[in-house]
Design a binder for these strands. Structure first.
Length: 227
DNA sequence: CCAGACGTTGTT
DNA sequence: GTCTGG
DNA sequence: CCAGACGTTGTT
DNA sequence: GTCTGG
């Protein structure tokens, strides 16, 4: 699954990876947490970044705070669930990232692991987005990250993993006319061979902490083999 | 008919 | 223990 | 995801 | 908004 991630790409990387028209200046982020604003690429405006809250608020919600617990949606069921099905049909998005964290349970303690592409390239989570309107007419835009089966790399860490899209599947995912079969086709576990992970300090546990040091390897000697 | 939920993860 | 907030 | 709160009344 | 449960 995915409850904390990293986006420290340059504007050039973002522009190139997603073929954007223009890219706003973005601070590098090493500790993005649910409820925070995140840049996404929507099917409605695929040539630009859109800032939305991470944590999908269904349009019919009475209380938008529900979004705080809607930061993931199961890929297997999102097309049917009342909270997600409309978004699954018409409001899909790419959520750019350069890495994410998983907390591995070791006895009583949880140790954060930083997972990334071996070549440190930028990638995209498969996401859904939604608009919620408050009684005064103000709009809250939000998104969620789909989860699916883990690949062989992540399987020892967790029984779920965020869905990462192949670059060649971006267009399909954002195509509002794509048939359901084509969509489920692209929601496969990302190839293990292209990914790696290592343990990091528990500093990342608090969302208040931020900075490049959060993705520094802990215990570099014994972790080298994993890189 | 109306009331109440609508979600995921992980753990038991 | 469980909910809320970031 | 983890961290942190978890409550009310009345007064400023 | 729409489905489920009573």
């Amino acid at each position: 699954m995915c409850g904390r991630y990293v986006l420290n790409a340059t504007p050039e990387q973002l522009q190139k990876a997603f073929d954007l028209d223009n890219v706003p200046r973005l601070e590098p982020r090493y500790n993005i947490a649910p409820t925070q604003p995140v840049p996404i690429i929507t099917d409605a405006s695929p040539k630009e970044l859109t800032l939305v809250q991470w944590g999908l608020v269904p349009s019919w919600s009475k209380d938008p705070s529900i979004g705080g617990r809607m930061f993931n949606a199961r890929a297997e069921t999102a097309a049917e669930k009342p909270s997600f099905r409309n978004a699954f049909k018409r409001r899909r998005c790419l959520i750019p990232a350069t890495g994410f964290y998983e907390w591995r349970k070791e006895g009583k303690t949880k140790k954060p692991q930083y997972i990334h592409m071996k070549d440190n390239s930028i990638f995209a989570f498969a996401g859904l987005w939604e608009v919620w309107t408050d009684p005064e007419g103000g709009e809250l835009w939000s998104c969620t990250i789909l989860t699916g089966e883990p690949n062989d790399l992540i399987e020892p860490l967790h029984n779920r993993m965020a869905v990462i899209l192949e670059q060649g599947d971006y267009d399909t995912w954002l195509d509002q006319d794509a048939p359901t079969e084509a969509l489920t086709e692209v929601l496969q576990p990302y190839p293990s061979e292209e990914m790696a992970y290592y343990e990091v300090a528990t500093t990342v546990n608090s969302y208040r902490n931020e900075g490049a040091e959060l993705i520094e390897p802990l215990n570099p000697p014994e972790q080298q083999s994993l890189l």
